[in-house]
Each structure stands twice: as C-alpha cells, then as structure tokens.
Design a protein around this nucleic acid. Sequence first.
DNA 1: TGTGTCTGGGACAACGTTGTCAGGCAGTAG
DNA 2: CTACTGCCTGACAACGTTGTCCCAGACACA
Lengths: 336, 336
Amino acid sequence: MNDVAKVARVSLKTVSRVVNGEPNVSPVLVAQVRSAIDALHYRPDIGASTLRRSDRRTGLIGLLLEDVGNPFSSALHRAVEDEARAHGVHVLTGSLDEDPRRERELARAFTMRRADGLIIAPVGADQSYLNTEIQADTPVVFVDRPANGVPADTVLATSVAGATEATRHLIAHGHRRIACLGDYTRISTARDRQRGYLAALREAGIASDPTLIIPDLHTTTLADRAVTELFHRTRPPTALFTSQNLITIGAVRALRRLGLHHTVALVGFDDFPLADLVEPAVTVIAQDPAAIGRTAAQALFRRIDGDTSAPGEHWIPTTLIRRGSGELPPPLHRDE
Amino acid sequence: MNDVAKVARVSLKTVSRVVNGEPNVSPVLVAQVRSAIDALHYRPDIGASTLRRSDRRTGLIGLLLEDVGNPFSSALHRAVEDEARAHGVHVLTGSLDEDPRRERELARAFTMRRADGLIIAPVGADQSYLNTEIQADTPVVFVDRPANGVPADTVLATSVAGATEATRHLIAHGHRRIACLGDYTRISTARDRQRGYLAALREAGIASDPTLIIPDLHTTTLADRAVTELFHRTRPPTALFTSQNLITIGAVRALRRLGLHHTVALVGFDDFPLADLVEPAVTVIAQDPAAIGRTAAQALFRRIDGDTSAPGEHWIPTTLIRRGSGELPPPLHRDE
DNA sequence: TGTGTCTGGGACAACGTTGTCAGGCAGTAG
DNA sequence: CTACTGCCTGACAACGTTGTCCCAGACACA
C-alpha cells in the first residue's frame, strides 16, 4: 500500500480511501491510485484491515459439523454457505467425527482466528467451555443437537415427533412387532427418536418389547448385522424403524440379502439420495438439512448484527415420505 | 496481551514468549503468565500474529469446489481437510456452481485473506487471472479439471481411459448400439469422456452413430427426458454410457419407468452411494475423490513448503465396478 | 579482580491497515 | 479584508502481535 502511494504520488491514507470507496476523493487522484494499484498488482490485506478497523469483524464464520463428507452435513454446509455469501462472509469448516476433544479444539482455534460467529453440531456432553467465548461476544448457534451448559440459539429437527410419526405409520398399517434400531445412546437425537418410537407404541396401547430395541448402531455394517440377527430369532418383528441414515441403508442391505425386502416393512429416519430407486423404495421421515442450515445462519447473523434477545429453539419439521417400504402389511397369519 | 502482562507483572514480550512456548523463560514467570492468561480468558489473536510474523503464514487454505453439497465435492473436501489437519491448517470453502465469475471472485477474496494456498476445481475457460497470485507466491493446485493459461499442479481422474473402459465393457458384452449421454460440452471432462467413448468404438471397429451422442445434460431431469426420448425412437440403443453422476441417476429413473431396467445395459461414470442397492445394481467407473483431494492437498503443502520444481499432472486411476447393470446382454433378435 | 560467556528479561520498532485530526485552498458572505 | 464554510488531502497514532537488540546479573576461569 505504501508502494502504491509512492507510485500514485499521494499519501497512504488516500490510497486507503480509494480502496474502501470513501467519498470526497478527487476523480483525478482516484484514477492515479487505480492505475498504480493495477500496475503493482496490489491486493489489500484483509487481515491487517480487520486488525485496525473499529468493528473488529473478520467476515469469517466457523462451521463445525459431524463430517463435511456426509450428505446431511454437506447439505447443511451448503445452506450455510449460501446465507453467508449473502452477507459477504466466508465459511471455515471442520469435521468433528464424534470427538468432543476435536470440538473444543476447533472452537478454540476458530475463536483465535476471531471468527465473527460459530455454528456447531455439538458432539460433546458439555459445551460450557464456550461460555467464555460467548461472553467475549462471539455468538454461537447450535444445530442438529442441543447443547448443554450454554444459553444459545439452537436449531433442531423435530426428532421425537418424527419418530412418533414413523412408528404410528407402521402401526396404522397393522404392525404390532416393530423393532427400533438406533445410533449411540449418548447422542441425544438417538435418544429422542427412541422416545418418539415408545410414545407411538404407548399411544396405540402396544406393550413395548425391550428385545426389539437395539441401540448403539453407528455404521451400516453394525446395522446390517443387527438386522440379520433379528431375523434369526424365533419371533422376529414384522416392521423396522431405523433411526438414522446409515442404519437404514444397512437394514435395506440385510433385508435384501435375507430376501425379506418385500415382506418386512421399513421406515427410516432421515432421507437419503436414491431412497426412491431401491426396491421397494424406502419410506422415510425426511429432515430438511438445508432449512436447518439456513435457519441457523440467519439466527447467527442476527446475533452478529447485535440482536441480544433471549436465545431460542428453532424447530424444523420433518416430513413423512411414503415410498413403499413403509406401507407393506404384516403377514396375515401372525399370531398378533 | 498487554493486560496479561500487567497482571503477571512482566513485559509484553515475556507473555509472547510463554504463549509461543519459546525457551529460556524461568518457570516462575511461566506460571505467573499462565495464571494471568486463565484469569483474563486471554486468547491470542492469530490475525495480528501472522501480520507481524516473518513467515507470513496464515495457516489457511482455500478450497473452491463445484458445490460443497454434492457427494463428489464433499468427499474431496473431507480428504483435503484431513490432510490440512495434519499440517495444522484450516480450510476455507466455497461453491462455484459452474459460474466463472464466482470462481474469480472467490479466488481473489481468499488471496486477500492471504490464504497460504488454493485448491480449485476450475469452471471458467481461462485461469490466467491467477498468474498474478502465483507470482506473488500463493501456490495453486487444480483438481478434477485442467486449468488453462496457468502453469500449476493438476490432479485429474483418468477420464478418457475410464470412459474407454466403460464402453469397451459394454462392447465385450455384445453391445453395438451404445448411447453416450454427457454433461455440458464446455466442461472439459465431459469432452474427455466422450472422447474415451469414441475411442472404444473405433478400437472395436464400430461406426459411431452421432444420433446416439447426447450432450449438455446437466441434471437428472434432463437426463431422464433424454433417455425417454431415446427409447421412443424406432431404433433405440441397447446400452447406455452415462458420463456423470446425475445423468446416471436420471437414466436409472427413466429406464425403470419404461420398464427397461432389466433389458438395457448401463454403465455410469462416477460412483454414487447406494448404486449397489438399486435393481439391477449399477455398474460404474468409480472415481476416487478422496485420493484426488489427498493428492492435491499433499501437492499444495509441498509447494507451500517451498518446492519449486516444475508443475506436474497427477492422474488418479478410475476403477470399473461390475454390479449387474453393465453386464446385461443385448436382445438376441436385434439386427446387428 | 578482571574478563568472557551464558541466561533471563525488557524496550522498541515494525507488520499493513484505518480512525482521528488538523491544515490548505476555494468560495461566499459580511 | 476578515471570517466562515465545505471540500480534499496528509501526518500520525493505533490495532495485537513478534523480531531485534540490548542490558543486568550469574557463573566460570585465569
């Protein structure tokens, strides 16, 4: 910038004025500065600029997701990016892989970069470590899972209601023995979905069978194995509620291999690409990751712009998508 | 930092030394400084630090992808992130949506943030605008598509060879009338894949039928429509080569609706989740987005660390995955 | 005791910007 | 001619750090 000033034969400050489009610079000097900038290939240094500026905005937000490579996270990411773009802000991303240490490290690293705000899909049991940052005026919005120990905006899918709807749907089609396959119990949404499942059974007056509730399935392989085991029992279920993406896919794979895909009903939580193309097409409770991301980003930018109202919870509704697998009836000759 | 120094009753510089773990500070003072840091919730400002530091490293790299939400991009993103993590570097991401203007804007914005390097999946016809930045010592690595007008490392899948293998595979199963459904012709990889298709036909002595080459399909809908049209002709093809993800999915959908999914052979370029679960499972030429991302990041970090050897091309091989759809034979009674 | 070496610590400038303030120069009114 | 206004422009300090240099004191050796 000094060099530009020298070449354009004006002061440093005048160059700054031109770069920032401030008014009251004579057209002659503007032209001089512009051509000097071009000649020297000058690029303003945003880092230095935010250091000096009074508002201290970096124009950076941090986005901590489970895994930027999975469909749910990446759809959410995209929605956040679009919102950020509208605000002229860039997005720093990081994957947490269910590792609470990594969550803390990345949150800390991004605040050290003076990110204007953070959107976090929390994995740890406790987020109170963020209180310091929030008091230091770095707003935080949580997505997908509720946080603990921090008052902050949270954007969640209606997990309980969605799971209830899924289960109710299976009951409406005549099923009584419905298995519930879930993710790690320490994940709060996994617990929510199980709660929703139980609520629907209770509502229908069906006694829940604990042997049909299989938790801690985190991968397709584990889910596949669990389903296989389920149908080697003497009294297998007639329908499955799979409470997560990968579990659903694992279940589809297992049912096919067992030749049961046209016999056993299936409703999955969370939609996935091509769910409509498998045989039979998979009925799901679809979340709306784009809406979650958009809502979270909007809330964050409101905070960044100074909104100090009490933090709230935003619920993004789920939708039942009937595709076939969830509408299969139970075999007639079953004893219940 | 000043405040910390005051509370710890030491000089600014000593605090800096403690924060950066420099040697030759007495344990007593280290402890004092540490407790002052904790008491004041002090967080070093990385921006200010890199401004002053002599190496001028921000610990930030920029990653410009087609769309962070699509499976190919997000798998690549994840691989880049893993490599970056190993180097203690954070990743700034942006989606380009096939918009060359957006490519230039984001590249410029990230260099203004003094990113240590850029990984770009280029969409524009010309990247010579980057020469300035490269000369100013911001290394750039291109992925997925070759760049024009810039000497820089490039990481590419073997598109031509992959397309040839796909087509050859169909020919080996007896097909002669094979359609080629492609993306926008302005995308170089789309042209490459068509070239590979033509090469395989030539090699087998089959005259290529121009009416079977359908370009400019960018979405599932367009692909679906094109396939539908194809099978309303009097002499439809017996096999399809779909040269991109979304096109493959559109084709699967159309074939199903037409009831031809067990009749018409199909090989797609680029694997996609659940390709093994549709009926019949889809034979594909799989790219390896993770390997592409990893290789690109490794090349970038070598450049950042001072490697000045001539830029090179890294070819990541594709793999044919036989799943069923590509192994369907042509109907026997066809006249050729 | 004088000299040299090593260690721990601080003062100061600088990184590339922008906020603040003051000054020069027209033009206008008294 | 003076006083005031409004418009341009530049000098200077400051943002939060770290690189450089220098000094005080401890210690060893002759």
